[in-house]
Computed example of a mutant assay.
Amino acid sequence: MEENNQPILSIKDLNKSYGAKNVLRGINLDIYKGQIIGYIGPNGAGKSTTVKIILGLEEGYSGQVQLFGKDISTQSAAYKKRIGYVPEMADLYDNLTAEEYLTFIGELYGSGTEAAGTKAEKLMDLFGLTEVYHSRIASYSKGMKQKILIISSLLHNPDILFFDEPINGLDANSVMVFKELLAQLAAQGKTIFYSSHIMDVVEKISSRIVLLHNGMIVADGSFEELKNTNSEGTLEEIFNQLTGFNEHKETAQKIVSVVEGV
């Protein structure tokens, strides 16, 4: 395993373009075990592209990405077994039951069928889904499907987790459980990348916040550190200040005017 003083993830001068559009422009980042990183930014800032490069889903970048102490470009695909991932938009195999789907995912990550099934069943119970374990995923609500995605990201006990809008569709009680789960995973030495547009959640759960804007890091530190270097008070206000968006009231007023036919 990695030494605690060595980054679990190190990104050096990462650049990525799609045609003439520069999506990432010189990202430099060292991430350590046990950190909960709030990785935030406006749509198109480069958050998902960064994560997809780390996961080996995007190529054609320049710079260096080291995960678990080795460059991902020279590692075998085995390093991915140490990663958990919940994308913002995911297609589940709706025709499978949760038992079939989660057992399949467990086997993909190297667990035996019986071991994967046992762990999946226990996690389904803890997430309040025991009654639908043998039901087809097609019959699930959005929140239930989201829980399946979260369970599938945890089944193989990964060392680093990437969550993109993970609480979409979850009820209030489940959100409380999930936030506590993140804290306890981090306390066990897991590293968590958390992307969301729900700023108050990011503010509360993150040990470190990294803000991307136009493909560059414009802020990096704890919430207290960001607050001390910016004139605004909440993370949402700091976000708006650093990304130059201050038209929310005016835009909302215009929308109301259109709705009311003024």
Rank of each mutant, 00 (worst) to 15 (best):
T130M: 06
I209S: 07
D200Y: 15
L126D: 14
N230G: 11
G117Q: 05
V201P: 02
I238R: 02
N28S: 12
F68P: 00
N214Y: 14
I31C: 02
L242S: 09
L181Y: 04
V177R: 13
T130G: 12
L108W: 03
E59H: 05
K47G: 02
T229E: 14
N230K: 00
G117E: 06
I11S: 11
E99C: 11
Y18V: 12
N246Y: 07
G221I: 07
K190Q: 03
I8W: 01
L9W: 01
E247D: 11
Y32N: 02
T234D: 06
I160H: 04
V23E: 06
N4Y: 12
K119C: 04
D200T: 13
G84V: 02
E260Q: 14
I105F: 00
K47P: 02
E58V: 11
I167S: 03
G44Q: 09
I27V: 13
G69L: 08
E232S: 14
I238K: 03
I53G: 07
G169Y: 00
E59L: 04
G117K: 06
I151S: 04
F239Y: 13
V23L: 07
V175A: 03
F193V: 06
Y109I: 04
N5M: 11
F104W: 01
F223P: 10
M144T: 04
S17Q: 12
L181V: 04
I192L: 11
T97M: 05
